[in-house]
Design a protein around this nucleic acid. Structure first.
Lengths: 259, 259
DNA sequence: GAGTCGTTTTGATCCACATCAATACACACG
DNA sequence: CGTGTGTATTGATGTGGATCAAAACGACTC
């Protein structure tokens, strides 16, 4: 049984900021000082190159929970690196149907969908109070022609997104409900781990409906799968708070198609 | 009723080759002479820049129907531009499940999934005898640092792929079987049109099973939907040969969710 | 022209998830 | 502290597409 007093995992918004001294100079962001380097674009850059990237990533933007970072159709000008917070992207078509296409957390890059047509093709919404670094795209391209590593990093980020999409297609095309949710939880766990949080305990920022939309399921089905996982002892659920009790069990649920 | 003697649409393999004089010089391909410029990477490049791109796109590779262009896990070295023919990409997981993630035709670029990890994440198979242009990736990055338009074109191609994936997620996540097939047919029609073929009559290169895998359906469901479309007068089907009789009807089937 | 194999079509049945509906819970606000 | 609102859970029922099965068709070989 899940105990109410279990300490919550450290919230993203409580990320140690000590690495970013808030001086007049560094208010305009500094990739070189950013703790998210390895997830972002600045990996493998020399000091001088980092300084140039710092010059490019000019401003930050704060968003309140529920605010749009951009909307489908908005002119594309910049990419956004999530500094703190949590986002979802979604697409919607005329008849009202919509689909969440992704959840983005610290260190991940938003907006690449806009490059092809100079306009964004989806909406990006903050699921909690968040902050992003603005990366003017024309300048990024310019600097990428100068800095080989930056160019390569950016190509890798785009490609990583393509691979992620492949995985999601696989999920949507071939998996049953519980497999989808298991895959989702394992993915979340992995991403939290990468960011230094507990792999086993985290707080979901999205509703059951948003999870369902992302996984191609109805919210009731998501809720039932959560309950089922809890009954089976895989996880402990308390609303949006998740504790993974048997990560190996979840993995097996994914791999060994239990026909 | 469909008449057997209806002339088939011009096959891709019958593309006029006159634009590519087969001389000793041009055997090593020439983007500058390629009729697929606007689909590919060479749009907006000056004469000198085109010449440099020609130097990069060194060799072609011919594949017989059924041959793999690359397999998941293969080291990533180059991108491939489809010159003639038709490909599918698919992912498969341990337990035997697999999913077709895309069909690629003339002028489209394959292999971008490999950039992120230096290894391909999916398989690419020729669905008919085909020919690709080999684009060594390191050299493409090198030249992209020199040629602004090439860099931008490449970024656009990657981004276009991201947007395509979004559409596919939408399809897999929210559409019913007949909507999926309608979307598929309209997409095929549009892509054939772009290449100068009839929007209304074409030859599918893939099996029902491959269509099903791509659309997240079983082959029987695909077959039934085809039959249904024929009964309703939307299309005429004869095995892999498709004639669209009521393109507007198909569009409406997609947009106006007929609850 | 008979025989084989892969593909497609069509029918009968089943089941996973959607849908509909009611209740419970958490959180914000007067 | 009650009251409202959005979110989550749980139950009962319906259905779209999967599954199982068989037949038809086309392409290829001998």
């Amino acid at each position: 049984m899940w105990i109410k007093t279990t300490p919550r995992p450290r919230e993203i918004s409580q990320l140690p900021n000590s690495a970013i001294p808030v001086t007049l100079v560094s208010i305009k962001v500094a990739c070189s000082q950013c703790s998210l380097r390895e997830l972002c674009l600045s990996e493998g850059l020399s000091k001088e190159e980092l300084a140039k990237l710092d010059g490019l990533v000019g401003t930050r933007r704060k968003l309140r929970r529920g605010q749009h970072l951009y909307r489908a159709g908005d002119p594309f000008e910049a990419l956004y690196a999530v500094r703190t917070g949590f986002f979802k992207t979604d697409v919607l078509i005329e008849d009202g149907r919509d689909q969440v296409t992704g959840f983005q957390m610290t260190g991940e890059i938003l907006g690449m969908d806009g490059i092809s047509t100079e306009a964004h093709s989806c909406n990006a919404v903050a699921l909690e109070d968040s902050e992003v670094c603005l990366i003017p795209f024309a300048q990024l391209e310019h600097l990428s022609r100068e800095i080989k590593a930056l160019q390569h990093n950016f190509n890798k980020v785009m490609s990583r997104e393509l691979v992620r999409d492949q995985g999601l297609m696989m999920l949507l095309g071939t998996m049953r409900a519980e497999e989808r949710l298991a895959a989702f939880l394992l993915n979340m766990s992995q991403r939290f781990t990468l960011r230094g949080y507990s792999p086993a305990e985290f707080h979901l920022r999205m509703t059951r409906e948003e999870i369902g939309s992302y996984l191609g399921l109805k919210l009731e089905t998501v809720s039932r799968a959560f309950s089922r996982f809890q009954e089976e002892g895989y996880i402990a659920v308390q609303q949006k708070h998740i504790r993974i009790l048997d990560i190996e069990g979840l993995r097996q649920l994914l791999n060994h198609r239990n026909i």
